[in-house]
Every structure is written in structure tokens, then in C-alpha cells.
């Protein structure tokens, strides 16, 4: 088991490193001058040259990349002209735009994204899995048909359309909810929940049809297995067949996919974040990409990449825990 973790951790590290290297390289191939953008529109060539010097943009790419990696491991000192700014490890450098420490930027933005991903997961699990179970076990009922239609519609609609629709319906027309502004969970849990409700719904709906399909097919597959037949032949009621024997097997792949999807939400929820103005990681990434703010972009990609890799490991562990026949090695 220790060997398993060690190998998975090394693999994860390799993935994240390759990811960061690719992003670094892409930025140097892509057009645009970060120094000009960092300096602002009214800079003269001399000022731009100074900024370029200050940001170490004149060093060869691999040297810059190496310094960047060094910063992550052991921190970095930056001269601010008047003094020295110490950036503690893990240091992802300073933003080209406003000299803020990238690590701080990300830490500030994580709670909003984590809130969004967690709530959306609850929505897709309740709505998607519920619909899937219903359509496997009680196909053709009105509730089942409405829910199936709803999940399909939710998935088929881009989030900036469905989000807009939700905002107009609940905030503008019905006035049941305020237009969402992000309130940190620590400040006021109730306001946090009310304000997050629409983003959760929008993102959760987007994922729910996939879960409905997976749950339905997984449930039907499990119900067709031989051991279900065994207990049916021993007089078990259909209800107990499902509750005692089918549910666990049917849910295992759903749990594993949920863990993996939860991880990918850190990078994939950016549209929802933009739509509802949530100060999350995705929003940070979009803004940083627009201004060629390399340290921020690389750091965000590394963080989201790490989230995905960790989520996948967790997914495997959960799957193995659900199905004891699976041996991790």
C-alpha cells in the first residue's frame, strides 16, 4: 500500500511538472509582450526595458523556469527597488500585473471555487443519481420523465444561458433570491448558501445528465447480474434485492466518477464563476491569461492539475473501498 501511494504520488508530480513546462513553453511561443502589458499603455520603450529587466524576462526560458521551480521548493527573494521582498515557499512568483504573491492570490480564490464545486456536486448527486435510479427502477412515471427531461436540458444548455435564465427567473422576475454576490462561508453561512444557490444549480445541472445515465446503466447492469438472481431465487423481495445487493455495486462507479469530476471542477468551473461573478480560481485564470500574467497562469494550471490528479487517486481509492475485489497496486 505504501508502495502504491509512493508510485501514485511520483506519477502525480510528473504530470504536474510536465503541465507547468508546457504552459511555460506555450507562453514563450505565443505572441504578446508581458512587459508591455505589465507596464501599462503609457510606458515608453525605456520603461518597458526596465520592467523586462525587473521581471527577469531577458533570461533564457529554461533559466526562468528553473528559478520558478526553485521558488516553489525554497522560496524566493525579490528586490522591490527600495528593499527585499521575501516570498515564502511554496512561492509561485509575483504577478506581473500587480506584484502580488501568486500563492496568496490563489489561496484567496480557493474558497469560492471549493464552495462552488462542493455544492454543485451535491446537486448533481441528488438530481443526477436520483433521476438515474428512478429511470432504472420506475421507468415511465411522470416524475421520472420530468427529471430526465430536466437533466438533459440542463446538460444541453451552455452554463451562460442556463445561468442567465436562472438569474432572470429567480432574481429579476420572481425576486426570490438576491443577485448573487460571494459571501465567504466563514463570514455568514446562511448568506453564503443563499448566494451560492444559483451557481450550484447551474453547474450541478450541467453535470447531472451524465450522472443520470451512468447511474441508470450501472443499476440495470447490476440488477442483471447472477447474484441478484440468486437472492431472487431464495425469496428476497425486489426492494431488499435493490437495497441490500444492487445499490452498492451500482453506486461504485458513480462515486469514483464524482471524485474525479470534483477535482476537475477547479479548472472547469470558470464559465460558471464568470457568469455569477464568483472570485474563484477560474476567474483568476481567465484574467491572468488575458494579461499574459505568466506566474499566475502557470500556478493556477499547476493547482488545478494537482486537484485533478489527487481527485483521480481518491476516485481509485473509493472504488477499491467500494469493491473489495479491486486490489490497488
Amino acid at each position: 500500500m505504501t508502495g502504491y501511494f509512493l508510485r501514485r504520488a511520483l506519477g502525480a508530480l510528473a504530470v504536474v511538472l510536465v503541465l507547468s513546462a508546457v504552459v511555460y513553453a506555450t507562453f514563450y511561443i505565443a505572441p504578446g509582450d508581458p512587459a508591455r502589458l505589465a507596464c501599462g499603455p503609457r510606458c515608453n520603450p525605456e520603461q518597458i526595458r526596465q520592467v523586462r529587466e525587473q521581471l527577469s524576462l531577458n533570461d533564457p526560458v529554461y533559466v526562468q523556469y528553473w528559478h520558478f521551480l526553485q521558488g516553489i521548493v525554497s522560496g524566493h527573494d525579490y528586490s522591490t527597488g527600495t528593499g527585499v521582498l521575501h516570498c515564502q515557499a511554496p512561492c509561485f512568483g509575483l504577478s506581473y500585473q500587480n506584484d502580488q504573491q501568486v500563492t496568496d492570490l490563489i489561496v484567496q480564490r480557493l474558497p469560492a471555487t471549493a464552495s462552488l464545486a462542493t455544492g454543485a456536486m451535491v446537486v448533481w448527486l441528488l438530481l443526477g443519481t436520483g433521476t438515474g435510479l428512478l429511470s432504472a427502477l420506475r421507468r415511465g412515471g411522470l416524475t421520472e420523465r420530468v427529471l430526465t427531461w430536466l437533466t438533459l436540458a440542463g446538460t444541453a444548455t451552455p452554463v451562460f444561458i442556463s445561468g442567465l435564465g436562472l438569474l432572470m427567473l429567480f432574481c429579476a422576475y420572481l425576486e426570490w433570491l438576491p443577485f448573487p454576490t460571494y459571501v465567504p462561508l466563514g463570514d455568514d453561512p446562511e448568506q453564503w448558501a443563499w448566494n451560492m444557490l444559483l451557481p450550484w444549480l447551474a453547474l450541478g445541472l450541467l453535470e447531472s445528465a451524465k450522472y443520470a445515465r451512468l447511474t441508470r446503466s450501472s443499476m440495470l447492469e447490476t440488477l442483471a447480474e447472477d447474484h441478484i438472481r440468486t437472492f431472487r431465487a431464495y425469496g428476497a423481495t425486489e426492494r431488499s434485492l435493490i437495497a441490500r445487493h444492487a445499490l452498492r455495486g451500482a453506486v461504485a462507479p458513480v462515486v469514483a466518477l464524482t471524485a474525479a469530476d470534483f477535482g476537475s471542477m477547479f479548472g472547469n468551473a470558470m464559465l460558471t464563476e464568470m457568469m455569477f461573478g464568483l472570485p474563484g480560481i477560474g476567474q483568476l485564470l481567465v484574467n491572468a491569461t488575458r494579461t499574459i500574467d505568466l506566474p499566475v497562469v502557470v500556478a493556477v494550471v499547476m493547482v488545478t492539475g494537482t486537484a485533478v490528479v489527487i481527485a483521480n487517486i481518491v476516485a481509485d481509492l473509493l472504488y477499491a473501498a467500494a469493491d473489495r475485489r479491486v486490489v490497488l497496486r
Binding site: 447472477d226 447474484h227 440468486t230 437472492f231 431465487a233 431464495y234 425469496g235 452498492r248 455495486g249 473489495r324
Partner: peptide, 18 residues
């Protein structure tokens, strides 16, 4: 199961794996 009990062919798949 009470009056008549069935023994199935494939003993691995016929038992609940969990």
C-alpha cells in the same frame, strides 16, 4: 429457498461479491 432451493452454475458470479 424455503421449500425448493436452487444451486446455480457459476458460483463466483452467483454470490454477492461485496
Amino acid at each position: 429457498g424455503g421449500t425448493a432451493a436452487m444451486v446455480f452454475q457459476d458460483p463466483l458470479s452467483s454470490l454477492d461479491p461485496y
